[in-house]
Write a protein that binds this DNA or RNA. Structure first.
Lengths: 204, 204
DNA sequence: GTCTATAGTTTGATAGAC
DNA sequence: GTCTATCAAACTATAGAC
């Protein structure tokens, strides 16, 4: 029998596992011991792969974000009409944050437990491209709004419900329908189709 | 000279000061020592006022939220027409989160670093009333959307830009105008005035 | 590359004097 | 009510053997 290496942990295995931990408990809520024991190595070995906790965290965030934003960027830069691309983008983003609860949590943590240095690095080097793609698509829609603000509004309207998480489900009026990602996507698309349409289509 | 008691710390003084600390650094980022020394007392004295860290935190969140939501609830339950109330609510909420950066950060922390028990307590006992008031106002607008989802959308579109904080200001397209709360309030109101109007007003 | 062992801090919480 | 003094546990990071 050929000896396999399934037990040997690659750097990517460490990133995936610690990504899940950081998403659940944040930077301060996860110790290097936790990461080490979760991956089946000792803390000293972990320090062999990553110079310190800060660099481990930065690599985790970049890894998770690039993984999710790759498909979104393809949709945004596609050749369909602007509205079709926006609709596909919204459906895809809702799917991502609905299925993988960890991704959105990690992004929420970054905004709270990172100092300005870390936020600068990530904004410039990791987050910027996706925002620009959304902003440019919004501009193509020609709705008359400031594209920067309109892009923020799109992210807000899509993401907030999922960021609210457990608290949201405890608010009065919640029904099982509201746990269905498609229902949310349809709602957001309906709202934005009206709110973001061209001014001349609004005249009577 | 009559002896003053300005140096004596009341329970409310402790809540205000530790509220600022928890908003900046989160539950795990603030030690009981930090709170004690910031208020000029010793840890042992702090434990005389609050049974443990958990109860201090819960009282802080409730104190901060009730302080801000009081004026909002008055607007929402007022006698103006639904649209006027919605507009005033949005302007007021934007002012609150723009002026007091700590408030929104504290609410973001709660969603991330609280277990289900703590979230249940706060959702039921603190957050619920404001959400219901917004949901009912949205229902009055009669736009045809599910009021629960539409209310979430309103919160998302208003709050997300401010929750994004420092990262937002690093995104391409940012201009000094975007640091002005009134500009944001006007943008949100414009978008929602179109998106949330009655269906029959949409027919040509 | 992986381990054991540990240095040096900081944490939440308490005991007991005044 | 406020203090000094203290505890057991957990933390990041490193040194040095194999």
């Amino acid at each position: 029998m050929i000896p396999t290496q399934t037990k040997r942990k690659t750097k990517e295995d460490i990133l995936e596992l610690s990504g899940s931990l950081f998403a659940q408990f944040g930077y301060d809520g996860v110790s290097m011991r936790d990461v080490a024991f979760a991956t089946g190595i000792t803390p000293a070995t972990l320090y062999h792969h990553f110079s310190d906790k800060e660099h481990l965290y930065l690599e985790v965030v970049e890894h998770e974000f690039r993984e999710k934003s790759a498909e979104l960027t393809i949709i945004l830069n596609g050749t369909d009409s602007p509205w079709i691309r926006m609709e596909r983008f919204i459906r895809n983003l809702v799917q991502i944050v609905a299925i993988d609860g960890n991704f959105l949590r990690l992004m929420q943590w970054v905004r709270l437990d990172s100092d300005e240095v870390r936020q600068n690095k990530l904004a410039e080097h990791v987050f910027k491209d996706l925002f620009v793609a959304v902003r440019d698509l919004v501009a193509e829609l020609d709705s008359g709004y400031d594209p920067y603000m309109a892009a923020m509004s799109v992210f807000g309207i899509v993401l907030f419900s999922f960021e609210a998480g457990p608290v949201r489900k405890l608010m009065p009026g919640h029904s099982p329908d509201h746990d269905n990602p498609d229902v949310w996507a349809n709602h957001v698309i309906d709202l934005l189709r009206i709110g973001l349409r061209k001014p001349e289509d609004n005249k009577c």
